[in-house]
């Protein structure tokens, strides 16, 4: 009969893994906390902005991982929501600076919490609309249609001459938050770390919840889910919206970080990069995409310093990593085959 341990759903071998993960988290927290001090101490403050970019992309890649890694939905247009989040910050700042109204009735803002929330709402809505349409298709068709929609959003912003068109939009000052000195890169770094910590905590709960269990099931066998009475479309749509919101958060942070937004944020190659981060680090794992983001952003930074033909070197490196890790880099660290869900 049901042993208590089994009834609680605790895998007998899982305790050791839990301990390892806990230790890993502590190490991660310490590294993140000490990073700015260390960077300044070794006279390389650029490390702080590099780490900030890695963290922002970690959020973006993790948001894609929800649908790509957990749900098995190969969305090739995720940069659209990243870009939309960025543009919300940019456009609200534009109207704040001009002291006029967006669409004639929405005032601009330079308040971080307001613009971040607006970015989440608008990205989520965009994901709701585009997801509702594209999730009616599957397989290759789904990949193509998500790409096509993302390109439409891309060209929309290219054609918006008011907001700079091709050239993009400058955000002269970072948004304000609780009287913090956001212009200071170390301060902004800690703001990003805090948001990332909250984001990953929520993400962790989400993928272990009943909803998360359904999502992982959708990746593995949709026919089975239908056979136990689950209509998968709505679950996929909800996941798509949550993923869009996550990308919107990352986009809003990126706009503040680089004090600039442009259609480049929504370019299809950006979507491709996010996919590479997920696959590289390991899909359907909590921190896999973050590791993928660290590796990809890190490699790009190092290689662009060497040569302008850095992409020719990056490609083979990525292929080698993919060949040697199979399930992503995280599988090497934890030495396991099965994803979390």
């Amino acid at each position: 009969m049901a042993r208590t341990e089994a009834a609680a759903g605790v895998n007998p071998g899982a305790r050791r893994i839990l301990l390892l993960r806990g230790a890993g988290l502590v190490v991660l927290a310490v590294v993140l906390l000490l990073l700015p001090m260390t960077a300044n101490a070794i006279g390389d403050p650029a490390l702080i902005t590099l780490a900030t970019r890695m963290i922002i992309y970690a959020i973006a890649a993790a948001s894609l991982n929800l649908i790509l890694g957990y749900g098995g939905l190969v969305s090739f247009g995720h940069a659209a929501y990243f870009g939309v989040g960025g543009y919300v910050v940019g456009i609200l700042y534009f109207h704040f600076a001009a002291d006029d109204l967006f669409l004639g009735f929405i005032p601009g803002s330079n308040q971080f919490l307001i613009t971040l929330f607006a970015a989440m709402v608008v990205s989520g809505l965009a994901a709701l609309v585009l997801g509702a349409l594209s999730l009616r298709t599957t397989g290759l068709q789904f990949i193509m249609i998500t790409l096509a929609f993302a390109q439409m959003v891309f060209f929309l912003f290219v054609s918006l001459k008011v907001y700079g068109g091709d050239d993009g939009l400058i955000v002269r000052r970072r948004n304000l938050l609780f009287g913090l000195n956001m212009a200071n890169d170390t301060t902004f770094y800690f703001v990003c770390v805090t948001i990332a910590a909250l984001y990953f905590a929520v993400f962790w709960r989400l993928v272990g919840s009943r909803f998360g269990l359904v999502l992982g099931g959708i990746r593995q066998n949709e026919r089975r889910l239908a056979a136990i009475g689950i209509s998968t479309y709505r679950y996929k749509l909800v996941a798509f919206v949550i993923a869009g919101i996550g990308a919107g958060i990352a986009g809003a942070l990126m706009a503040n970080f680089s004090k600039f937004v442009s259609p480049d944020m929504l370019h299809w190659s950006r979507s491709g990069e996010l996919m590479i981060m997920v696959i590289l680090g390991g899909g359907a794992t909590l921190f896999g995409p973050a590791i993928g983001a660290v590796i990809l952003v890190g490699l790009e930074t190092v290689l662009t310093g060497w040569t302008e033909h850095w992409q020719f070197i990056l490609g083979p490196i990525l292929i080698l990593i993919a060949l040697f890790t199979r399930g992503g880099v995280l599988t090497l660290l934890e030495n396991r085959r099965a994803p979390d869900a």
Partner: peptide, 19 residues
């Protein structure tokens, strides 16, 4: 998961399903 499906909708986003 089949028990969960039978109980009704699965829009629970926070509590750990495995425990």
């Amino acid at each position: 998961l089949a028990v969960q499906a039978h109980l009704g909708h699965s829009y629970h986003f926070w509590a750990d399903a495995r425990s």
